[in-house]
Amino acid sequence: MNYLWAFVVGGLICVVGQLLIDYTSLSPARILTGYVVGGVILSAAGLYKPLVDLAGAGASVPLLGFGHLLAQGVRQAVDQCGLPGIFTGGLTAASGGIAASLLFALLAALVGKSRDQN
């Protein structure tokens, strides 16, 4: 059941993004930014955690989950160390993903080559 929910929930979150692309004039960059901020808001409102519990990667892999991760990190850090936690919590929680993207990107730049889209 885990897998089915992951597939369905993840797919539906992407469909919402596609509808935004097709029916609004929002550019992909704005949609991504909106997804992350939306994830923070949904998480703050306590709505995202139940979805992650249900769908696992289906909810955490889309960028809404990235927002959820940031919000959760801030919340835990504030619980632990008070006000400074609002600075440290978010990026600490997201550090794995951001660092991995940067490192793999540098490796890709080392071996990769810009190519034509024929």
Partner: peptide, 8 residues
Amino acid sequence: GAGTLVPI
């Protein structure tokens, strides 16, 4: 489209 845009 969004299927490859929205995931991490």
